[in-house]
Structures are given as C-alpha cells and as structure tokens.
Simulated scan of single mutants.
Amino acid sequence: MYSPYLYARASELLALRSLISEKTDLTGLLPVIEPVISDTSGIHRCMDAFGNDKKPLIVVTNPNQHQYLNNLATQANFVKVSQNLFNSHTTLLPGYCIGSTTTQKDVGAFLNQYPGKNVVLLYNNPALSEVQIQTNVTFNQILFHVVLNDKISTAQLSKLPKNKTIITQDFFNKLDRNTDYSGKEFFTDKHKSVGKDFYAIGDYTITGKKLEMGGGKPGAVASHITYKNSNTSDIWVEHFVSDETDRNISDAETKFLEMARKLVRQVRSLPAEFGWNSSLKAYDDHVNQSTWSGLPKNKEYQIKHHINLMLDVLNKRL
C-alpha cells in the first residue's frame, strides 16, 4: 500500500484527478491531502472524483498550513463545507492530525463529529500517553494510523497495530534552486517493508514536506523523476535540469525542452527502471512536437509519475 502526502495545491490536485480520469490502476493507493488554500473548489472536485470512483482518499480536517495556519475559523469552515462530501462518499476518510497540544478530549470530539464513519488519525509529535493511544486503537472507527516523519516515541509507536499503521517520511532532498540539482541519488528502500513492519509507506512525492507557495521566473527548469534501481530494487531519483540556468537568459519553454530532451533520452534507454505512464508519454510528446504546457504541468507530471512508479513497484509490475 502506498500513501503519498500531498498539499492541496492545483498541481497536486490535478495529478490525483488525472489518475482517476485516465482510469489508472490505483490498486494499493491511499493518498492523504491537506488543504492549504481557503478556496475549497479545487479540493472538493478532487474529493468528488475519488468518491464517485469509489477510491479511498484521506483528507486532513484540521489543516495548519498557509491560509489555515493558526486559523481556527478557516479550519471550521472547511469542515462545515466538506461535510456533505464526507457523508455522500464512504471512501472519503476524514483525517485528524494529533500534535503536541492535542488532548484526548480533542480526539473524542473529532470522532463524535463523524459518527459511524471510518476515520484516520495522523501523529505529528503527539503528547498523548501510551494508555490514551492504546485506548484509541480499540475504536473500530479508526481505520488507519499515519505516523509523520518519525515524530512519535518508540513506546507510543509500539501501541499502534502494524496492520493499520502507515509510515510517512520525507525522502526528497530539497535544494534552494533548480540549478543546484544534478545526477542521481537514493530516495528510499522503505517499500520493501510494506506488509511486514507496517501496512503502508507514505512520502511527500518529489516536492518535500516543506510547503512553498508560488514562485517567480525560473533560472533553470528541472524535473525530478524517480525510478527503480535494477541492481538493488531501491527507489532512486534522477534530476534533469535545463542547460541554461540564468533567469535573465532564454525563456521557460526553451528551458523546459532542454530538460525534457535529457529526460526522454534517459527514460527511453532504461524502460525497466523508469517504467512507462501518461506523464512520461507527455514529456515524450512535448519533445517530439516541441511544445509545452507550462511549469505547473511539469510539476503535475512529476508527481503523477512518482505515484505511478510506486504503485508499479509495490504491485510488482516493475
């Protein structure tokens, strides 16, 4: 089982919706999305797409990033306007993040808000006692327990059932500038422990857990494409960067095509490592036709490829 953690920005939501619209085999996929923008139209379209297709999707109902940061009113409004979607679709799973200030009373209030519905608890430096965590585990309503970035004690973790625990970590080595990336590097081997030490593996795809909104004119255009190392079966990532890296020279389309030509050449030479999916085909088409769809699409392609790759590896298609 694979459980990517995605901030609900446009590229991430479009990547998820594309997986549904393209009829991708999503066996073993359990995404987590955290709202970051108060306008709920985009995230609601994504929730509706997964719900209508009867695919599971965890939605964090107490987000605390960007426009939700320390904003209880915005959080409450998201819960209110999303209630009908949760009620209408059994596969949409409300998630609640337990942090250092979360009390057992808070957890109880969350559970009471969704009576009779499966929910998910996420742990990010929880202050709950081992007894309280063990008590929560007994509630059949809680379908999964997501541990974020090892922010839980060994004693607390030992109380969580392995067959319901998702281990989510940031495996992407994020750098300040696109031009700083080069070559290949190890991403993770945690997928080898799925079904043994825990139920599912999660990551922050190729964006990392640090949320960065917006962005100006790029110096370099880059794509971070994961692949299965044929020697070790570990997941690695290769960074493809445009030749031109000066923001004041050339345009983004030219830089995108410089990068994409390198990417396509490498993917074509190692099909057993990169696999093949709609994102890689999109890059191939752009190169063949000398076109592009803008920088947001480049990000969408990378995220969608990574999800496809992880599913291919875990389902032994690659």
Rank of each mutant, 00 (worst) to 15 (best):
A252H: 02
D170W: 08
I303T: 09
H239W: 05
Q134V: 00
A272Y: 01
S153G: 14
D170I: 10
F256D: 03
N125F: 08
P126A: 12
L143Y: 06
I142T: 12
S153M: 05
G202V: 05
H306G: 09
K196M: 00
R17F: 00
F50Y: 11
N277D: 15
P126E: 08
D312Q: 13
Y123D: 07
N84W: 01
S242I: 09
H89T: 07
E244Q: 15
S3E: 02
V137P: 10
F144W: 15
P218L: 06
V107M: 02
D25C: 08
K192N: 05
Q113W: 03
N163M: 07
L309H: 05
Y114G: 06
S41T: 11
V107E: 03
K281W: 00
I37Y: 11
E12Y: 10
L270V: 04
A282R: 13
S290L: 09
L57P: 06
S223L: 09
Y96M: 10
F240E: 05
A73Q: 13
T102F: 03
L30V: 02
D243T: 15
V60F: 02
Q83Y: 11
L16G: 07
E244C: 14
T207Q: 08
K174E: 06
L128G: 08
D180C: 03
G275D: 08
T188Y: 02
S269G: 10
K209E: 07
Y199S: 09
Y301V: 03
A260N: 11
S38A: 15
L270C: 10
T226G: 14
L30E: 05
A220N: 09
Q113H: 11
Y68K: 10
N248K: 14
K55D: 00
R268Y: 00
N112R: 12
L122A: 08
K54V: 02
T74I: 12
V313Y: 02
V313G: 04
N229A: 03
L72T: 10
